[in-house]
Design a protein around this nucleic acid. Structure first.
Lengths: 154, 154
DNA sequence: TATTGTTATACTCTATAACTATA
DNA sequence: TATAGTTATAGAGTATAACAATA
């Protein structure tokens, strides 16, 4: 929560507020279950990438391999993923969603798209295309600025 | 990181990506110091609210009072805040920024506004007003949806 | 009796470093 | 020698519950 509560918040504050609201809502939605935002994100990555090694998942999530081990331990206990042997590399494992998890992620993907639509419907119809373009442009600009600050000019 | 990497990401994915990029950049910027995103956010709240009780800060940050105790312990050790006696309630303390922290937060506020401008300058000038309106509308809509989901119809 | 903040405890997310088993 | 994943260790953020001092 890095946003401000002044009379007229900066657009950047609004953008940060959106991320926080989303995360908080996800935590609430999964309260009492084994799922957390980090674990759901990992499921999301596996859902879209298909069976993957832990190394690949660490890369895709932008976290350390060790962190993936811990998240997967929890997701395996809760029955959302299985670790199966890699067919050609006995060091590695392939992470797969269970059938239940596949069904859950499919539902979640639909809800995600529904939420996207519900949010965009708050925009004036004749401005919607501009808003979608603008948000994409802002995200891309920020990506460039962050990459530059990290010293890897993209 | 709840966004997707498909060819044409949903606008919602872009919005979540923006929040993650911002947080990651802040972590990088403060690496090696005592500051973290949660602590900076707390400084930000104190900077804007003025001297406050821990109870008030917990409310403003949306976290437990116990959590504020821990964040303030670290910020006091690092010389960013002081706890001073409350003038009329001997149970409570007033949290104040140190002079150094005030100076730092003032600089940060300027940088924050500069970043806001840098991001919006990525938007076509004739669409900028629509994009600002649209993002505000999306944030407000999401706030309503989350409040409803939490069972406190706003 | 209610409130402010702390101590006690616990869980999650995260990281680095050292180690094992394989390549 | 390099890579995939785990064990060991540690720090940060978060929560609830029990407690002290004060209101």
């Amino acid at each position: 929560m890095y946003y401000d509560h002044r009379m007229t918040p900066l657009t950047l504050d609004r953008l940060l507020q959106i991320g926080d609201l989303f995360r908080r809502d996800m935590e609430r939605a999964f309260a009492g279950t084994a799922l957390t935002p980090a674990r759901v994100h990992l499921l999301w990555v596996v859902h879209h990438a298909g069976p993957s090694t832990q190394r690949e998942l660490a890369e895709a999530c932008g976290v350390s391999p060790r962190n993936i081990t811990g998240l997967l331990d929890a997701l395996e206990r809760s029955g959302h993923v299985r670790r199966v042997p890699h067919p050609s590399d006995r060091r590695a494992v392939l992470v797969r969603l269970t059938d239940d998890a596949v069904a859950m992620m499919s539902r979640m993907q639909i809800e995600h798209a529904d939420l996207d639509e519900a949010l965009l419907s708050a925009v004036a119809p004749d401005e919607r295309a501009a808003v979608e373009r603008g948000i994409a442009a802002i995200a891309e600009r920020l990506e460039v600025l962050v990459a530059r600050a990290e010293g890897r000019p993209s």
